[in-house]
Structures are given as structure tokens and as C-alpha cells.
Amino acid sequence: MKILVSAKRVSDPNAKLAIAKDGKWIEGDVEYILNPFCENAIECALQIAEANEGTETVAIGIGDDETARFIRQGALARGIDRGILVSAEEASIDSDLIARIYQGVVHREKPDIVLLGKQAIDGDSNQVGQLLAEYLGWPQATFASKVEVSGNKAIVTREVDGGLETLEVSLPCVITADLRLNEPRFASLAGIMKAKKKPFDELEIDDLDLEDTDTKVQIVGLSTPSGRKAGVIVKDVTELVQKLRSEARAI
């Protein structure tokens, strides 16, 4: 079996971001982390591989040298067998092009399962897994909180409003990982050392023979959230109730 798994870097949600002068991207010394949902996908791929001997795992990332570092340290160091970097400037691609790049890589690699994070925590688009399944014509199981692979199918439990839904999908398929799927392991130092020697391919978008490389979404502008309004101290319950009614419209 072969599993292709995503390793996308995202800006650290705890870091302060500065918006570039043109208002369309972030700038400065941004601290990045591996997308936490991708970490769940990687852990899931490793667990499937550990339970199914002979499974090959491949991590894919799109970006520059920095992204390559996250593929190595976030995926290969944890135990993924090899890595693929598709060179692209992150500011100039959208969810649709990412899905098409993945599609091109799937055609080359022919995996049985594509495991992705359900969304990247910076853009929050939540589109790539679904688009990819459509372009490939494969079944999809999104928001997975449990994955079991047996024979030629996967049993996936997904978290839906008000409960759980269990799906059976035939392979090949696309699965996107939710947070409660597992607890990602730490990257061991021995793993980090080994990761340096693992196979690592670098591709250009042109290498993938995509029919369509246009982006469909343009970022028109970014803005920071407006600051929270300062609290007020009310003098009694009557005033509190009045403000809750007239200003907060909570009652």
C-alpha cells in the first residue's frame, strides 16, 4: 500500500502577524509551524503503515526551502519514508491550484490513500481534500476522527453536527484528518538525523503536466481584527439589565 500525506506549513497562530504594504499578504519575520491537521494526517499515515507491513508513506508540500524543512522535520523525522516538494510561491496559489498540484502528484505516485489535514489553520479554506477527490473521481471521507484500513477499503468515523457518522470507502480514496483523530508523536532526534538521508524529490509545477494552472481566487485585501472594546463597569443590576437589552441585545 502507498499513502500520500500533506505537510503544509502555516503561520504560528500565537505569533503576531504584520500585513504587507500592498495589503495582500503577510510580511516580516513570520514564525511558522506545521499545520496541526497535517500532523494528525501524518500520525494517521504512520499508524496505518505500522499496522500494514510494506506500506510506503510519502509526504508532499508546496512552497520553498522553508517548506522543505517542515517536510523533513515534521514528516520524515517522524517516520514518513520520503518527501516531495513542489516549488511555488505560497502567495500566488489558491486551494484549487493546490488540489490540482496534488492531483498531478497522485498521477505520478499512484497512492492508495491520500491523507490531508482537513484544513490549514491560517487560510481556513477547507477545500483541498474535497476538490482533489472530485478531480480524481475518488471517494472522500472528510473530518476523520477514526480511520481503519482493511483490505481494499477504509472505515472512517467522521465528526458531524450532533454525532458521529461512519463511512466505508473503497480505495483509492481521499481522507482528511480532524484534530481528535490521534495525538501526533514528537519527532525523535534519531528520526531527525535519519530524515536528512531519506529520498527527497523537488518538482516544478511544470513537471506535473497540469491542464489548468490558473488561480481562481484573488486576495483583494487582508486586515487585522478590530480591537476589543473596553469593558464598562455598571453601577447596579438595573443598569446591567438595561445595557444587556439595549446595547448587547442579549436579552
Binding site: D12, A15, E31, I33, L34, A77, F186, S188, L189, I192
Partner: peptide, 13 residues
């Protein structure tokens, strides 16, 4: 000199 080790990959880790 060490038996095993891990390196934090993110501020959270």
C-alpha cells in the same frame, strides 16, 4: 551519550 531524544517542532511542542 544519549539513549533517545526529541526536538520540539513548534512553539506548542
Amino acid at each position: 551519550l544519549v539513549r533517545d531524544g526529541v526536538l520540539a517542532q513548534s512553539p506548542q511542542e
